[in-house]
């Protein structure tokens, strides 16, 4: 029922950046499959990740925990992880939990890209 799907685009040549567009709800039900997919990207040295949350309707602590875990792995490999386009609701959850102190959140794709320049 609470499904979550992702679309991955790879951009850049010298520094490959993966744009991951997330649609649906990221809760305890959908997060194991989501985690597997993102770990697959990280394992293949996709260390610069940009998450498009424009169509993410919901995120629970399981989803937020996964994001923190991915950011840690990406940074250990000298990459980074950013979030852009969150809806006001998702942005509010991220801010209330203080997650934005550890993961950069941008208003749009263009400004998010600047994090990797």
């Amino acid at each position: 029922m609470p499904m979550c799907s992702i679309k991955v685009e790879k951009i850049g040549f010298k520094i490959p950046i993966f744009i991951i567009r997330v649609t649906g709800s990221l809760d305890a039900y959908s997060f194991p499959e989501f985690e597997d997919k993102i770990r697959g990207i990280l394992d293949k040295d996709g260390i610069n990740l940009m998450f498009d949350f424009a169509n993410l309707e919901y995120i629970s602590s399981a989803g937020l925990g996964a994001m923190m875990g991915f950011a840690k792995i990406a940074r250990e490999k000298k990459g980074d992880l950013v979030i852009f386009n969150p809806t006001p609701k998702i942005n509010s959850i991220i801010n209330i939990l203080g997650l934005s102190k550890f993961i950069k959140v941008f208003d749009n794709e263009k400004t998010a890209l600047s994090a990797f320049e």
């Binding site: 937020l64 925990g65 923190m68 950011a71 939990l97 203080g98 997650l99 550890f102």
Partner: peptide, 13 residues
């Protein structure tokens, strides 16, 4: 929570 997040941990949240 601040220490938890600093260590990039989210379980128990």
């Amino acid at each position: 929570i601040a220490a938890h997040l600093k260590e990039m941990k989210m379980h128990g949240l």
